[in-house]
């Protein structure tokens, strides 16, 4: 590249003006072509442009439902009925949010707090139990290890519906139905919601802990537990962040199991509830009224705005958490052994 830019003046000096000018022109043309098509070392403009355009377009597709939700949730009644307004509401209108907050029987803040408890506590237990199991599988060789890994994969592939009802029966025999224990107990024994994925993540991560480090600690007289706490855990922050985020989000979004085990779908006991359950109830209620009034699309649209506001309220905490942690999360992906090998 650099040689090209230096070449024209020297050529001009040597061989007269007209020829030099032609050469300069050619070089210039080459440069333009190079700019667009790129060279071996550098992407050309066309390729760069294409990559950015694709990324932006697809990124927009990802963001589109969110943006649509955000836009619709702020629209007032007039905006919703006005077909000329599609994206930007005429004014900043939060009445939809107010309605969504008071639409269901339970207070939004109570449901939010309970959501945090239901998602947060099992996450803590999952972190402890899955990291232990993952470390055990990664560092030690013992008989039956293959069986354990096979069972973990089986648990991952098997649909939850297979074990749902027997588990329900088991919980009621243990007397822990409709308490938080139904989530905590499996989580504490590394068999909670999607626990196999977390075990695999930890396993792959702990495999990357250098063997020599562990051996050095052993020679210095550290026991296995001490090695785990002092060496393995210290370096496992990225794995912990990834697992914690996934676990929290999946528990947060798990409406059905929460209803079945904690809230008690068979028995109407409304002690526990989450924002997601509230959202489902609300949207099914709104849907019911929708079908009765299919003739008037206006009402349909009106309820949609409130629905959008409600769903935004339900995932807003997740988005905030994601926003706070995303930096660590994205970085941790580069370092976690999600993929291993």
């Amino acid at each position: 590249m650099r040689r090209d830019t230096i070449a024209p003046p020297s050529a001009e000096q040597q061989t007269g003006k007209s020829r030099g000018a032609a050469l300069a022109k050619k070089v210039n043309k080459d440069r333009i072509v190079k700019f667009f098509r790129g060279s071996r070392d550098k992407n050309g403009f066309i390729k760069t442009f294409a990559i950015y355009a694709l990324l932006i377009c697809i990124g927009f597709i990802y963001l589109y439902p969110m943006l649509k939700m955000l836009a619709t949730s702020f629209m007032s009644q007039n905006d919703l009925l006005d077909s000329s307004i599609r994206w930007i509401p005429s004014g900043f209108n939060i009445s939809n949010y107010r309605q969504a907050m008071t639409a269901t029987s339970t207070n939004y803040w109570t449901a939010l707090l309970q959501s945090f408890i239901i998602a947060g506590v099992p996450t803590l237990f999952t972190l402890v139990s899955c990291s232990l199991t993952g470390y055990g599988l990664a560092t030690f060789k013992f008989r039956g290890r293959g069986v354990i890994i096979g069972l973990i994969v089986l648990a991952f592939v098997l649909p939850r519906q297979v074990t749902m009802i027997p588990t329900y029966g088991l919980y009621s025999r243990l007397g822990i139905n409709q308490t938080l224990w139904t989530f905590i107990l499996p989580a504490a024994f590394a068999n909670g919601l999607n626990a196999s994925i977390f075990i695999l993540i930890f396993w792959q991560f702990f495999r990357t802990v250098p063997r020599s480090l562990i051996e050095a600690a052993k020679i210095d007289g550290a026991g296995d537990l001490r090695i785990f706490f002092r060496i393995a855990l210290r370096s496992a922050a990225p794995a912990f962040i990834t697992v914690a985020l996934f676990c929290f989000v999946w528990h947060w979004n798990e409406a059905y199991l929460t209803q079945l085990y904690i809230q008690g779908k068979m028995v109407t006991n409304n002690q526990w509830t989450t924002v997601i359950i509230q959202l489902e109830q609300f949207s099914s209620n709104a849907g019911g009224t929708q079908y009765s009034q299919t003739a008037s699309t206006g009402a349909n649209k009106l309820s949609e705005a409130i629905k959008m506001a409600a769903s935004l309220l339900a995932v807003l905490p997740l988005i905030i958490i994601y926003g706070v942690f995303q930096r660590h999360f994205v970085e941790s992906i580069d370092r976690t052994g999600i993929t291993g090998e």
């Binding site: 139990s129 232990l132 199991t133 470390y135 055990g136 599988l137 560092t139 030690f140 060789k141 013992f142 008989r143 039956g144 290890r145 354990i148 973990i152 504490a188 024994f189 590394a190 068999n191 075990i199 296995d224 785990f228």
Partner: peptide, 11 residues
């Protein structure tokens, strides 16, 4: 081997 099993006991 024993330690490995021990770590996996919860699971």
């Amino acid at each position: 081997a024993m330690m490995g099993v021990l770590f996996c006991v919860p699971w």
